[in-house]
């Protein structure tokens, strides 16, 4: 590690293959910047296309629009038959309900698995782990028939109620891991002071597991908000469509004629995810690094 000794900026922990010298370092930066530009270019192109007049979208690859046309946003927001605001409202209701459901049900199950000693716990825990990798398609059709019999098809219930039954077992696993790291002495102290299992959960565990709850909320929101398959299966009435369905409706009904408005609405639909990304970047990255969440 000769460089590490000479170059005070070199961080000691990076060891393995420290860039050889200033020029090597610059080369790596150049490569990474080029890669980053390539990664972001489609997104920037989407943004610039959304403010270009239609005839320029496909003739001018430059990012800087020569002419501005903000009417794409107005036309897009008005939508085909239903204004886009409706789709956003629907999406927020569904995603919000899913977040609440996952927080409540998964934290309850996680507390039971991590802290309470009850009969057949090992069996249930093993079964819970087994469902983490289960593809949604394995249960999709019977669930549809079940919800059809309940009269729930074409409502938000099939998208929200399962979350209140802790079906996203991955988050249970995440929370179990988190609770196990909380010192058990805290439970014991509270128990001596007369707290029962419910009080321990409410007053000790829940407040201390806030980071796990936030991670769960963020990922539940993004995944539910972006989900396309379940709304496609369950929601048939256009007034109930979520944002992804609204976009798809727009694509299907305007065809090639309205790229500008379509691009504008695609970009607008990504705004909630961008906002979450900028606000919770650190938690997102930590969540993935430590648990292997898929982004």
């Amino acid at each position: 590690m000769a460089q590490a000794a000479i170059d005070p900026r070199a961080e000691p922990r990076t060891g393995a293959v420290a860039a050889s010298g200033r020029w090597g370092r610059l080369g790596v930066h150049a490569l990474l910047l080029l890669g980053a530009a390539a990664m972001l270019y489609p997104l920037l192109w989407l943004a610039s296309s959304s403010i270009k007049p239609a005839n320029l979208i496909f003739s001018d690859p430059s990012l800087w629009p020569r002419e501005l046309d903000l009417s794409n946003y107005r036309r897009g927001w008005e939508g085909v038959a239903i204004p886009f605001g409706r789709f956003f409202l629907n999406s927020f209701v569904v995603a919000g309900g899913a977040v609440v459901g996952n927080l409540v049900a998964c934290s309850m199950a996680a507390y039971a698995f991590a802290r309470i000693d009850f009969k057949f716990k090992r069996l249930w825990f093993a079964l819970m782990l087994g469902t983490i990798m289960l593809p949604a398609h394995a249960t999709l059709i019977p669930q549809y028939i079940l919800f059809l019999n309940f009269g729930w098809v074409n409502s938000f219930l099939p998208l929200i109620v399962p979350k209140f039954l802790a079906t996203d077992s991955f988050f249970i696993f995440l929370m179990v891991q988190f609770i196990r790291a909380i010192p058990k002495e805290l439970d014991e102290a509270a128990a001596i002071d007369g707290c029962g299992p419910f009080a321990v959960f409410w007053r000790i565990i829940l407040p201390l597991m806030t980071p796990a709850l936030v991670t769960t909320a963020i990922f539940t929101f993004i995944w539910t908000y972006e989900d396309f398959l379940l709304p496609l299966v369950y929601l048939s009435d256009m007034t109930k469509y979520t944002v992804p369905q609204g976009l798809r409706l727009f694509l299907a009904s305007t065809g090639e004629s309205a790229w500008g408005p379509l691009m504008a609405m695609s970009l607008v639909s990504l705004v909630p995810v961008f906002v979450i990304f900028f606000v919770f970047q650190r938690l997102l990255i930590e969540g993935i690094s430590t648990t292997g969440l898929k982004g």
Binding site: A109, A112, I116, D117, F118, L165, G196
Partner: peptide
């Protein structure tokens, strides 16, 4: 207590 906390998951596991 264990089973009370586990109710939502148990219902979801068997029914869904």
């Amino acid at each position: 207590a264990g089973y009370v906390f586990l109710i939502p998951w148990l219902v979801g596991f068997f029914a869904l």
